[in-house]
Design a protein around this nucleic acid. Sequence first.
DNA 1: ATAAGCGTTTACAAAATTATTAACGCACAA
DNA 2: TTGTGCGTTAATAATTTTGTAAACGCTTAT
Lengths: 163, 163
Amino acid sequence: MSDPIEQVRKRLTEVGGRTAQDLGLGRIVGQILVHLYLTPTEASLEDIAKDLGLSKAAVSIAARQLESLGLLRRSWKSGDRKTYYRTADDIASALHQGLLMLVRNKMGMLATELQQAEAELSPKEAGAEAAFMLSRVKRARKLRDTAMSVLENPVVKLLTRVK
Amino acid sequence: MSDPIEQVRKRLTEVGGRTAQDLGLGRIVGQILVHLYLTPTEASLEDIAKDLGLSKAAVSIAARQLESLGLLRRSWKSGDRKTYYRTADDIASALHQGLLMLVRNKMGMLATELQQAEAELSPKEAGAEAAFMLSRVKRARKLRDTAMSVLENPVVKLLTRVK
DNA sequence: ATAAGCGTTTACAAAATTATTAACGCACAA
DNA sequence: TTGTGCGTTAATAATTTTGTAAACGCTTAT
């Protein structure tokens, strides 16, 4: 297995692991996705576990995550009890959608917190301290709104289409 | 200190901590930044540590990170040996630049890996396996290039300016 | 010169995350 | 039924990450 092809696959698989970890998705998720992306045939849970040197359990959990993100497809073969996995066909858009959703969620949380803070400061407190905090919160909200509007901007959405 | 103002500050500080952690910057970094952002006066290392219930050491390290990101400013008062901190004036653009830089770095790494893989597969290996991998790598590279071009697009840059 | 205060570093401890092993449950086959 | 193979789950082990306490070195004041 010191095949040059295997070497490339292994290296890219590691890259996938690191990348996924950066996104808070767990290293294994990325490893599996890249491994399957670079594999022409479908692979069973055990295949994947063996290829990546991981336990079936870990692969099972990660594969589930990947499927829920729309990045993996399960399939079955008649007369074979195993589940087989392959990457989704529209993997690019799934990736795009997934990341967008992730950011949107975070941004939503942020908006909620900032609005609540603003509401609690606005009417009641009148001291200089409160006035200062209110101005800061308002500025933060404007910043967030701008960032969000960029993501949702039709021009940007157009640009993100892969030809 | 069950002051409603303090409550708001504390809650937003926690939000900052979580957000920073999501970005892989460490919780404390976010806590400090928000805490100072919501504070009109400058604060010393010890002030910050006490307010947030952290050790001076932890604050020292995080503050350094924040300064290197251009998000914090140090200052000194004559006849006082302490270092004082306040958020940078252009905090919005610093944040923007910093995040952009982070993404750019990741994207750069990715590009390097993909190009290298492509080079190693292109000329030599001729099997069906290699051909498949090559096509996948090329597609991945195209995806990356598109994502990157969006970030660097002049229209997008314009949109991200906070009024 | 000596002492005292401050920020930083380092070595350690605590806590959270991650992955594994082993047990379980379910489906199909004999 | 009973046995076999598969995927999942739950408990444990290992690793990594995170934060602290204590020691250090530098600077300034006495």
